[in-house]
Design a protein around this nucleic acid. Structure first.
Length: 492
RNA sequence: CGGGGUGUGGCGCAGUUGGCUAGCGCAUCUGGUUUGGGACCAGAGGGUCCAGUGUUCGAGUCACUGUACCCCGACCA
């Protein structure tokens, strides 16, 4: 399936922003850096949640909920962790308002100052580990495998819809284990859950790998990541899974009695994906006509548009459509009939394309007479007239094919924009050009930092699967010896 | 927090060297004709031109101050 692989770069930000707003996914809220997710956008997020949730359950993970507020003292126990987040935290200092003495609205009641400030969670490691301390005493209590779906707040300087907002929705899993091996294996298992989800559900090809020490989560010994390529060639970190070692266990004094009767600190992981995945979906698959949704994540998989002149035709077509809808829904497909009678068909076609619905049926008098339906697919923008007879059987295959085609297109695009590079001058050009470059790296933070300063490129990951490349070579920048290639790119 | 830009009906914008009743497109409402790729015609409604101060006979237009938002940096999922 050879497809033309072209790169979007002109006004890509503009295109992205317009699409988010026009497709009815989200809009900027009056609150600085925050976002309103609209019903259609939220429906997609809910689909993501349900697929991920099922995968987590399969891994033995249970959902729970921990508080939004974290006492300042909890937060500061893990030194690296606090250093990583302190700059971007929202802090609650008071608990009451009062009427303005001047009679203009309300003011903060100075009497209601909190003794200890509360941090609005930027992530929940600290509150969760202070809780786990009470849950864990024996090796029999382990492992603990919890996940929570929640919002977090990170007071970012610059924000973009879905990609970086001051408040965002996510899930964060937090596990506690008896041994280092078991925890490390869990971190790896979860990054693979994310990779499977990205590939199979979101039709998003991703590279799995380790973060360099510089790019690690604050407080982690190892961070695993899935990295995706957007259509402008930039990288997007789509999910991370951290092996936290015993850092948090030690900071919060979480010990258990082993089978041998010894006191041991537990081993931890945490892992999360956020509404940023929505941004990945848009930037990986969208085109000039709007959003392109993989069927596995589309809230509406098939939309039906009736075409008619008279009331009788309208009724006859709708009858047929409701029958069809019932049959398709019985097979597990989600279907919507667009019977808004104030809008013309052409308008509806354009609107559903903008919203990325994978399959569109159009049925008019001609189809009614001939027993056919016009089937249009969003990914290829092609349409054909097919017989109604047996349509239920073919629709499943069509949706599968669309899912595969969308993945393949994104995959081909990425393959066309990943290459090995061993020349520094070439590196500087190609990285600006939106390529992922597989280069040798000497393993030092200094070299990584210098490359970042000069080109804005960062090490996206040290790949562990598809792009793993262990071979002797020389660092692209310093020329020092290197044992493997890593992925460099400019990222969101 | 540094550099740049923009604030004019719901949205997007025009508005000349300061000048008379502040315009245009989209959207909205009414009526009619339409409906197989974003309809057309006719009519209607909707504005303290971001705020404050100043210059002037006269300010959407000029100056200063404030403020909000956007873009580019630093920070980040």
């Amino acid at each position: 399936m050879a497809k033309e692989v072209t790169k979007r770069s002109e006004n890509y930000s503009q295109w992205y922003n317009d699409l988010v707003v026009k497709a009815d996914l989200a809009e900027q809220s009056p609150v600085r850096g925050c976002m309103v997710i609209k019903p259609y956008g939220y429906a997609i997020w809910e689909k993501m949640q349900s697929v991920l949730d099922a995968a987590f359950k399969k891994s033995g993970v249970k959902n729970a909920y921990f508080p939004l507020f974290i006492p300042k003292s909890f937060f500061s126990r893990e030194a690296e962790h606090v250093a990583g987040f302190a700059k971007e935290c929202a802090v609650v200092t008071h608990h009451r308002l009062m009427n303005d003495p001047d009679g203009k609205g309300v003011v903060v009641d100075p009497e209601a100052k909190l003794e200890e400030e509360l941090i609005v969670r930027p992530t929940s490691e600290t509150i969760i580990w202070s809780t786990y301390k009470n849950w864990i005493t024996s090796w029999r209590d382990l492992p603990i495998l919890c996940n929570q779906w929640c919002n977090v707040v990170r007071w970012e300087m610059r924000t973009r819809l879905f990609l970086r907002t001051a408040e965002f929705l996510w899930q964060e899993g937090h596990t506690a284990h008896a041994t280092s091996e078991e925890a490390a294996a869990k971190a790896e298992e979860m990054v693979q859950v994310y990779a499977d989800f990205a590939r199979n559900t979101m039709a998003l090809p991703v590279i799995v790998g380790h973060k360099s020490p510089n790019e690690r989560f604050a407080g982690a010994l190892d961070t695993l990541t899935i990295e995706a390529m957007m259509q402008d060639g930039k990288a997007l970190q789509a999910g991370t899974s951290h092996f936290l070692g015993q850092n948090f266990a030690k900071s919060f004094d979480v010990q258990y009695t082993s089978k041998e009767g010894k006191q041991e600190y537990v081993w931890a992981t945490s892992w999360g994906v956020s509404t940023r995945l929505m941004g990945a979906l848009i930037m990986a698959h969208g085109d000039d006509n709007g959003l392109v949704l993989p069927p596995a994540i589309a809230p509406i998989q098939v939309v039906m548009v009736p075409i008619y002149k008279t009331e009788e035709e309208h009724n006859a077509i709708l009858d047929k459509m409701y029958e069809l809808k019932k049959n398709l829904e019985a097979l597990g497909h989600s279907v919507q009939i667009d019977d808004r009678d104030t809008l013309r068909p052409g308008f509806k076609f354009a609107e559903w394309e903008l919203k990325g619905v994978p399959v569109r049926f159009a049925m008019g008098p001609r189809d009614l007479a001939g027993g056919t339906v016009e089937v249009a697919r969003r990914d290829t923008l092609t349409k054909e007239t097919v017989a109604l007879e047996g349509i239920e059987k073919t629709i499943g295959d069509l949706l599968d094919d669309i899912q595969k085609t969308i993945y393949q297109k994104a995959f081909d695009f990425r393959q066309a924009n990943v290459e090995k590079c061993d020349d520094w001058e070439e590196f500087k050009t190609k990285i600006q050009d939106g390529k992922f470059l597989l280069c040798h790296w000497d393993g030092t933070a200094e070299t990584e930092q210098k490359i970042k300063d000069e080109t804005k490129a960062t090490i996206r990951c040290i790949p562990v699967d598809s792009f793993v490349c262990e071979e002797e070579g020389k660092d692209i920048y310093s020329g020092k010896p290197s044992k493997q290639r890593v992925v460099f790119a400019i990222s969101y």
